[in-house]
Nucleic acid binder design. Structure first.
Lengths: 269, 269
DNA sequence: TTGTATGCGTTATCAA
DNA sequence: TTGATAACGCATACAA
């Protein structure tokens, strides 16, 4: 009464292998070959203690049925989703989408999927995003904080739970975790030195808003380069603009993501 | 021998409720209250046949333990992940990231997560992306095809499997599925009419590359508007540029996604 | 070499 | 009103 007609609606009629609805499972392959599920699992898993012919038959059948392991089931077993959660304030901002592009690219290389959320610069939404991603049991989080965020308890909580966390660009120094930031000072320094070495004499600096530390770090780099070459700093060559130019090549995100993965090697495999 | 010391490492020592590593589970709540797992499940699930006090205690404990249902386990049971897969050629292109932003926003509203892939304009990568997302058992796919893609068997296969599929912008007419496209003709027509109604007399048209049907549709809209107002078309006012201006407000994606969800209402709940 | 049993976290069914 | 059990798909420890 237990092994009779336990048809789950996923097998075809007499002798057919076709899986009518949905994806093929180990069970479907097992049935069509009259072997056990574990045999199929081992054959596909590359186990050594398995008959060569059995393996061949299983592999072939798996191909015919377009079998692909159910990541969801694997995740439940292993407690690992191979998915990273990324939270950015806004995806229409080039800086964030370019970085996302890089994160996604590197993640894919390492066999990770990427789940994306937007906080819309709202602290509340940032909290909700984290909850959602944690409910999906992502293996790690990459976050650029919302402008509203000034309380960091939610990040501290992640840290306590042992969730791998990486902050980028909009970071928070109070949290003990990997932070990824553009080296504004070094960038400005190198750019200025480059111009000097090209023979430029009067080099202007278009600065961002004065109140941002980013602007100050860039200005300092510019200033340091001039000093290094004994060129006097001339105030009239510095212009403070309202907007911060944060455009940068699409590869920037890839580099950042590279840093992520080298910093957090337990995410890599 | 069966119910002795089955400590899975997730419970704390004598009397403590703390879940040491990872997230709290129903089992953790059940243990700390000396009730069964199913009671806890029902209490949190809002079932009616449950003692009011029991529910109160369970809910409170769940809060204290920061319990959040394991989406992975739920997905395995229900065969539904509440996740959409999105494949775009490239995330650094504003058009795609702006649309992604809209898709994600609407998806989040409806309780869906979004998993993102980039094909890098490669047919092979597009295939891999689909496999990856299908392995993760996404509930549906939103795809903008790669430039390389000229064979549509992979889309046909999705259709056969009954996977909800939406194509946007880079669509393919051979597939029987929801397609989302910008109405280039109507946009150009309305824009031109607007200028005419503002009193403009000599209206120029900056067209994209002549070989693209998009360019032709826009030009036709421009042309039709002039004709509607009996304004002669003057060739010297038409300039063919090399680049296609596809910048558009971030809300475009939201509108598109709205179309997705209204077209595919079985995704909505 | 293969099969059986178990568990991952959750919920629905059935029994008490 | 509550508890025990089975099932989702997979992989592994154990038995044969």
């Amino acid at each position: 009464m237990k092994d009779m007609q336990q048809d789950d609606g996923n097998s075809a009629g007499a002798g057919g292998f076709e899986v009518k609805r949905g994806q093929a499972r180990l069970k479907d392959i097992a049935r069509s070959l009259n072997v056990s599920i574990s045999t199929v699992s081992r054959a596909l898993g590359g186990s050594h203690d398995i008959n060569a012919e059995t393996r061949k038959a299983v592999v072939e059948m798996a191909g015919r049925m377009a079998y692909a392991p159910n990541q969801v089931a694997q995740s439940l077993r292993t407690n690992k989703t191979n998915t990273l959660g990324i939270i950015v304030p806004d995806l229409t901002t080039y800086f964030f989408s370019a970085n996302l592009s890089g994160f996604q690219e590197v993640a894919a290389e390492k066999g990770y999927n990427v789940m994306i959320c937007q906080s819309n610069e709202s602290y509340e939404e940032e909290l909700r995003n984290i909850s959602t991603l944690m409910a999906s049991r992502v293996d790690g989080l990459i976050i650029s904080l919302s402008k509203q965020t000034s309380n960091y308890d939610h990040l501290q909580a992640l840290y306590k739970k042992g969730i791998p966390l990486v902050l980028f660009d909009r970071v928070c120094d109070d949290i003990e975790t990997t932070r990824i930031m553009v080296d504004e000072h070094d960038g400005a320094l190198k750019a200025t030195e480059h111009l000097i070495e090209m023979g430029c004499k009067r080099i202007a600096h278009l600065s961002g808003p004065e109140n941002l530390s980013i602007s100050r770090r860039r200005l300092q780099g510019y200033s340091d380069a001039l000093q290094r070459y004994d060129i006097p700093l001339r105030e009239e060559l510095i212009r403070h603009t309202q907007h911060l130019n944060r455009q940068r090549p699409g590869s920037a995100g890839a580099e950042l993501a590279g840093a992520v993965f080298s910093a957090r090697c337990h995410l890599c495999h």
